[in-house]
């Protein structure tokens, strides 16, 4: 088997999600595709559940060269590669079809390639749904309902500015402390996508989930530039083919998991609220006005808005 091992190129991929998560399953599918398309000459070794570090740390390991691939939230990429900041803007996409059209098109390619300046080559976007507010003891129907409430946000300036501008008090807090902080009322609520709301068991504490779908922050699959350049052209092709095959499969798995998560949290007594998104969208407009000081992002937003979809007005998931 030593002989065999020498012939097989093994890429180490680490990420922070647990093995029941749809994005993890998408990457397992990618691994199978890679083995198939390369005839067993290439495979992945996947390390889930933050075994090799947090998302930010894994990105550094790619730059250092001890890890080959990782999957992180686009939000974490913000402090590595500036163009990713555009994806954290609330209500950037008209709907899912628009989002996928942008990510699959030349603009998506441009954002993924921006990482190469930082020794991180983006391979694809994985769907991570939309993030919405969940509160411990009150529903959010309009931005006014957020007034003065302590909302846990990610360590991202864009996310903090968004909650601030909607009227809430953004409270940065490590994810590990969040469950008890919600339970004991250190914070009033948080925001995340349905599968994470479900798997984190925050629904045990937070009984109101308002699907305002403010940000559609995707996940990003990356490979260290040095590792990519070491691969033969043939190996690069195999890997890209496996990646491309995994994207639609992951979207299918995501939709399935999102549906199931919403069903399960409802079963656990969570009230799902479908608020009118317009007032939220209007409230965050100043974030876009402020972008005029940042020509690169401003231009990117204009081009994203200009992207047409084949089927405008397609229903949102």
């Amino acid at each position: 088997s030593c002989e065999e091992a020498r012939q097989t190129r093994v890429l180490k991929l680490a990420h922070g999600l647990d093995v029941t998560h749809p994005v993890h399953k998408g990457m397992v599918y990618m691994k199978q595709q890679l083995e198939q398309v390369s005839g067993g000459k290439m495979t992945l070794e996947i390390y889930p559940s933050q075994q090799l570090g947090s998302e930010r740390e894994a990105l550094e390991l790619l730059q250092i060269g001890s890890l080959d691939m990782t999957k992180v939230s686009a939000g974490v990429m913000e402090s590595f590669s500036p163009k990713f900041r555009v994806l954290g803007l609330p209500y950037l996409f008209r709907d899912r079809a628009h989002q996928f059209a942008v990510q699959d098109g030349p603009i998506g390619e441009e954002i993924l390639r921006d990482g190469e300046n930082y020794w991180l080559r983006g391979l694809c976007f994985y769907d991570a749904g939309s993030r919405s507010f969940y509160m411990k003891d009150r529903p959010i129907n309009t931005p006014a309902d957020l007034q003065g409430l302590k909302i846990r946000v990610m360590e991202s300036p864009t996310a903090q500015a968004m909650v601030s501008i909607m009227g809430g008090s953004p409270t940065p807090m490590s994810y590990g402390e969040l469950y008890t902080s919600l339970q004991q009322g250190v914070v009033d609520g948080a925001e995340n996508n349905p599968p994470s709301f479900y798997s984190s068991r925050h629904y045990e504490v937070c009984k109101y989930y308002s699907l305002d779908e403010h940000t559609a922050l995707p996940d990003v699959l990356l490979i260290g530039t040095k590792v990519w350049n070491k691969l033969s052209p043939e190996e690069q092709e195999w890997l890209q083919a496996a990646v491309d095959a995994s994207v639609p499969e992951e979207r299918r798995l995501w939709a399935e998991s999102e549906e199931e998560s919403l069903r399960e949290v409802q079963k656990a007594g969570v009230e799902i609220i479908y608020p009118d998104k317009k007032p939220f969208e209007e409230k965050v407009q100043p974030l876009y006005d402020a972008l005029k000081n940042d020509p690169t992002l401003y231009d990117l937003v204009q081009r994203i808005r200009a992207v047409e979809t084949d089927n405008p007005g397609s229903p949102q998931l």
Partner: peptide, 16 residues
């Protein structure tokens, strides 16, 4: 030093 060099060269800043 290599770690400091990489993060400075690649212009990495803390989020908050």
């Amino acid at each position: 030093i290599n770690l400091v060099y990489i993060t400075l060269y690649l212009d990495q800043h803390s989020p908050a």
